[in-house]
Design a protein around this nucleic acid. Sequence first.
DNA 1: GACTCGATTTCCT
DNA 2: GGAAATCGAGTCG
Length: 192
Amino acid sequence: MSDSPPPADRPQALTAFFSRPALAVARDLIGARLAIDGVGGIVVETEAYAPDDPASHSYGGIRNRNRTMFGPPAHAYVYRSYGIHWCLNFVCLRGHAVLIRALEPQVGMTAMAERRSLDRQRLLCSGPGRLSQALGVDGTMDGLPLDRPPFSLTLPTEPAGIATGPRIGITRAAEQPWRFGLADSPFLSRRF
DNA sequence: GACTCGATTTCCT
DNA sequence: GGAAATCGAGTCG
């Protein structure tokens, strides 16, 4: 056990964390530290999507595009939005997923600025499409496990002051307050 | 701050 | 074949 003890505890903890409904996971992810290839920051905004939710990709059953949402928890679900942007989600219970909408940049900000052709921190990751561009997320990361590189995910140790509100950019079930975030963070895609 | 437009994939008819 | 889509940048006022 002295050579290279595989930290079997961490991945299990991550799997357990994500083996819950998206609503619970989305709330508890606020304050987590996410990095991809050493580029990332603090999660400040999420949204929950569930199988019985008309706004969710998983609504209506399994399809080619949403296959990953029905796979094992603690994996990435990446899809293209409006044909232009990539969006990063984390798979929870079967058919549940959490959309990562905004980060507070902390590490690798040079790489982010380069990918985004921007230097203003506030705009680096304040939105799902921007975040994906800044972190280099694309379709090849769909289905990758979150407990191994290039992903690095550290769960929050203490509860944060969480604000809730209606989700953004959807037409069905738009009234559900399934958006979560740090109310006073300047890095939100939109204020609550 | 509000509005318009771009550009691609997926799914339904 | 066509509409809708978990958006962002640019423009106008």
